[in-house]
Design a protein around this nucleic acid. Sequence first.
RNA 1: GGGGUCGUAGUUCAGCUGGUUAGAACGCAUGCCUGUCACGCAUGAGGUCGCGAGUUCGAGUCUCGUCGGCCCCGCCA
Length: 582
Amino acid sequence: MAETKPLKRETWCGELREEHAGSAVTVYGWVNNMRELGGLTFIDLRDREGLLQVVVNESFPEPALLKRIGRETVLAVSGRVVRRAKPNPELASGQVELLAERIDVLAASEVPPFLPEARGNVSEELRFKHRYLDLRSAALQRNFRLRAKVNLLARNFLDREGFLDIETPMLSNATPEGARDYLVPSRIYKGKFFALPQSPQQFKQLLMVSGFERYYQIVRCFRDEDLRADRQPEFTQIDVEMSFAEPDELFAIMERLMRELFAARGFDVAVPFRRMPYAEAMARYGSDKPDLRIPFSIEDCTAEAAAWDSELIRAALAGGAKVKALAIPDGGSFSRKQLDEINETAKKLGGKGVIWMRKADGGFKSSLKVAPDAIAALFAARNIDPGALLLLIADAEPQALAVAGRLREHLGRRFQDKDRLEFLWVTDFPLFFYNEEEKRLDSNHHPFTSPRPGDVALLESEPLAVKAIAYDLVLNGVELGGGSKRIHDIALQRRVFQLLNLPEKEIEERFGFFLKALAFGAPPHLGIALGFDRLMMLLLGEDSIREIIAFPKTTSSLCLLTGSPSSVSQRQLDELGIAIRK
RNA sequence: GGGGUCGUAGUUCAGCUGGUUAGAACGCAUGCCUGUCACGCAUGAGGUCGCGAGUUCGAGUCUCGUCGGCCCCGCCA
C-alpha cells in the first residue's frame, strides 16, 4: 500500500447529501458494518455525525485490502460521492454513497465485545469495562453533545446576567458535618489531610464578602456516600451565589435559566414555577421533593377513622397513630392479586401494611371490617370518585406520611410522563432537625443557612420550630438543587454554631477564618446549587445519571474501566507517612 | 450497615423436581454470492456454568461463604 496521506478532516460521513454528488472527498471513520456480496462490498462508515455507505466494486484497485477490514476498523476512504439509484430513507446520508477509490486502514480493531449500536442489549457491567466503545454509540454521542451545549448555554446565560465564573480550591478542609469527605493526605504535613469539596460553599460566600456580588461556577463536587441511580461520588453542579438580593429574584433568574436550558431540547418551560412550603409538601405528598405529575395526594382521615368500629384502628389511634389516605384513580377495579401486591409493596417500603376500600357490587368493601355505610360516607365526604381505590395507612405520622409518599410514587408510575415537566420550589424548610444518634440539633441544610427574620426569637425558645430561608428546586420528583439565604451576621452565625452544640474550640478551628470574614463587612447574600448531571438526566429522559457521565463509577464506587480505586506503592505510602491497617 | 435481584460460549439468553455428550440466536472464522443496508446461503470454531467450600453415588441446578453488576432503605449539611 502507498504511504498514508496527510490527515485532514474536511468532510463528515453523516453530513453528505445529494448536493455533494459528483465531488471527490476523503472521509474518516469506524466500520459500523460491512456487507460483502461477492464482487461488491458495502461498508457503513461511522463518524460522530453519522453513517455513510461506502461502495467497493470491481473498479477498486486493491480488493485484497478488504480482508483486513472488520467491525470498528478505522479507515480513511477517498472517492467520489454518487447519487444512489435506490436511496435509504433510514440514513441521513441515504441519498448518496461514496464510491471508494482508495482506502487506508488507519487502525485495526479486535472483534469488539459488543457493537456500540447494540449497547441496549448489553449489560452495564460490560459497557463500563469498555466504556470507550459504549461512548461510540449514537445514544451517548447525543447525550454528551447536548451536555456540552447545555453547559455552554448555562455559562452564556449566567454571564449575561452578570455572574462571574471564579474557580475555588479542590484541596481544602474536611467538613465536620454533612457527607463523608474524600480525603487527600498532605505529604509535607504528615498526618494532615486536605478534603475534596462537597461543594464550594464557604468559598463562594467568601467571594461575596470580597465584593464580586454575582458568582457562578460549573464545578465538580465529591461525596463519599453510597450511590444510587441518580447519585455518583463525583458530580457536577451549577453553583451560584449573589449579594443584595432576596429569594424572589434568585428564583426568577433560575426560572429563566431552566427555560433556556430546556429549550435546547424543544421544551417550553412555563414560568414562574409553583411554590410550596416544606410542611405542605410533607403533609400532602410525604416527600420534600414531590412529583407533581402524579394526580393524587395524601389526605388525613384520622378524624373519620376514629368513629369506625374497628379494634385495629382504635388500638392504633390510642398509640398516637394517624390515618393517611391515598385515592388511586381507577384503582377500584384492581384484582385481588394486585391488592395483595400493593400491601406487600407497602411493607417493603417500610410500612406495616395497607387497608384498602372500594365500591364493589352492591356496596362498599374493605380489607378492614368497617360498616359499608361508613365507607360510603367517607367517599362522599371526601368527594372521592366511586371508581377509585382508597388506601389507608395507620402509623405514627412521620412513618405514615413516608410510606404513603413512597406508595404514591410507586402507584403513580403510569403518570410519570418524561415529556411533562413539573417544576416546583419547596420553601421554608426547618432550620434544624433533631439528630437522634448524637442527641443534638443538626442543620437541615447547612450551618450557614439563615433563619427567617421573624423566627430568630424562636432560636432560644423553640429551635425546632424555626424555619429557614431555604429552598429546593424540584423537577418531576427529583431534587434538582437547593440553596438558601446565608447568615451574614457574625453574632447570629456564632449562635447557630452554638445551638448545633459545636464546642467553642472546634468552631474556632473549623470556622474561625469564616467567622473572621463575616466581621469585615459581609453583605447579605444567598445562593443555590443545581445538580448538573441530574438536570441532564431529566432533560434527556434518562433513568440513570451514569448515562450522562462519561466515565461513571458503579454503585459500589468502582471504576470498571480503570480499576480504581487501587493500591499504591509502599514508597508513596511512606512519603505520606501512612500505614495501612490490615 | 441492611434488604431485593442477577452472574452459563465474544454477546444476549434457555437449561424442569440434581442425572450421562450444557443448547439457541447474534457475533466470529472459512467458502459462495454485483445493489445490500438486520444482505443471503453453506460449513466450522468457540464453555473453569463468577470464584471457593460443602451436601450427594452424581451439582450449571441444593446449602454456606465470597467477588461483581443493578434497584431500594439507611446515608447523601
